[in-house]
Structure formats: C-alpha cells, structure tokens
C-alpha cells in the first residue's frame, strides 16, 4: 500500500495536480466576481424596468429562464468549440454566462425583500434613484443574499470540473492525466480519494461559513 502511495504521489505528480487545483480556484474566483457583477445588473434591470423599458425586463427573464433550463455542460462545450481565444478566458466566459442567470435570480429575491418605503424615504431625503440603489438598497440586498451567494460559489467550484471535458488544465483534468498511468484499482481509489478530499475541503469550508452566517442571522 505504501509503495503504491509513493508510486502515485511522487513530488512531480503532486505538484502537477496542485497546479490544477490552483487553476480551478482561479477560474472559480474570476467567474464568481464576474457573475456577481453581471447578475446584479440583470437583477436590477428585471426588477426596476418599467414603462417603455419593460421589454428589457422581459429579455432578462427569458435569458435567466433559458439558461436555467439547459445543462451547463452544453454551454461549456458550445462556447469552447465556437469562441476563439485563450482557453482559460473562454471557460471563465462560459461559466459566467450560466452562473449570471442564477445570480440574477438570487439578487432578485434579495431586491424584492427590500420594502418599498425605503425608496420613498430616500426620495424624501433628496436621494436620486441611483444614489438610493448604491447607498441604501444594494448594501442591504448583498447582506441578505450572502448565504445563497456562497452556496452558489460552491456550485461554481463543482462546475469547474466540467472543464475536464474541454481539456483545460484544471484539477479534474490534471488528476485524470495522472490516473492514466495507474492500472491498479487500489491506486485509482487512492487518487479519487485524494481528489474528493481536495474538493471536499474547499466546499465544506464554504458550506460551514454559510451555516455559521445563517445562524448569526437567525439569532441576531
């Protein structure tokens, strides 16, 4: 068993796999930041478009619904095969594309929970619409959606494993490369266990944060 362990986890292999992990985290962080940005914009458009701008809200609704009802892997493959450019950039773009739709739904839930009286109150104090959003509505929204948002970050990290299919050098793919040189079941199990532990550590830490935060909200 120990021999097997030494055979698989040579320094070169471990370094190679950890490089993949680094790439996974980088892609996840970039996709998170971008999708929070776009998700906020989409949610604002959908919630506050009215009058002759109503069509913009409808468009956002169609976008979110369409991306919610089609598999993420499909988008990753489609984008990868048709958009030219840096591999990592393209994968971040693909993940951002479908995560923004989910983020928009999360933020819309937060925005809807802000009472209307806050707008009226801000207006009576001379705030413009954008100022109200920036200083009053958005800070409260972000605070409310933090648990849902962090859960979505966990999903993003798990979704990066789809990128193995398009050969981006992330964690799953690098481990699969190492896996290719193993012909023993126990060795395979060891490697899968290693992969699972790495993903689990990151995701479980995040989910603990979510739970801790939810508790503080409930108890005040």
């Amino acid at each position: 068993m120990i021999e097997l362990f030494q055979q698989i986890f040579t320094p070169a292999n471990v370094l190679f796999m950890l490089k993949g992990l680094q790439m996974t985290v980088m892609i996840a962080v970039l996709a998170t930041i971008l999708s929070i940005f776009f998700g906020t914009i989409l949610a604002l458009i959908r919630t506050y478009s009215s009058g002759k701008w109503k069509w913009a809200g409808t468009l956002v609704a169609v976008y979110t619904e369409f991306f919610r009802c089609t598999p993420n892997l499909l988008w990753i493959l489609w984008i990868y095969f048709t958009v030219k450019g840096n591999k990592v950039g393209v994968s971040v773009f693909a993940i951002t594309l479908f995560t923004s739709a989910v983020m928009a739904e999360i933020f819309r839930g937060g925005l809807n929970s802000i009472p209307k009286g806050q707008f009226e109150g801000a207006q009576s104090q001379g705030f413009s619409f954008l100022q109200t959003l920036w200083y009053i509505v958005l800070p409260q929204t972000y605070k409310k959606v933090i648990p849902a948002l962090l859960s979505q970050v966990i999903t993003i990290i798990k979704d990066t494993s789809f990128l193995k299919m398009v050969d981006v050098a992330e964690f799953m793919r690098n481990c699969a490369v190492v896996l290719g040189s193993i012909y023993d079941v126990r060795g395979m199990l060891l490697l899968f266990a290693f992969e699972a532990i790495c993903y689990f550590t990151i995701c479980f830490a995040l989910s603990c944060v979510v739970r801790g935060y939810q508790k503080t909200i409930v108890t005040g």
Binding site: K158, M172, C203
Partner: peptide, 10 residues
Amino acid sequence: EFIQNTPLAL
C-alpha cells in the same frame, strides 16, 4: 455532506 461537497463529474 460528502456527496454535496464533491463534484458530480468526479
């Protein structure tokens, strides 16, 4: 916990 915190692909 174990299933939720590891990717389906894995």
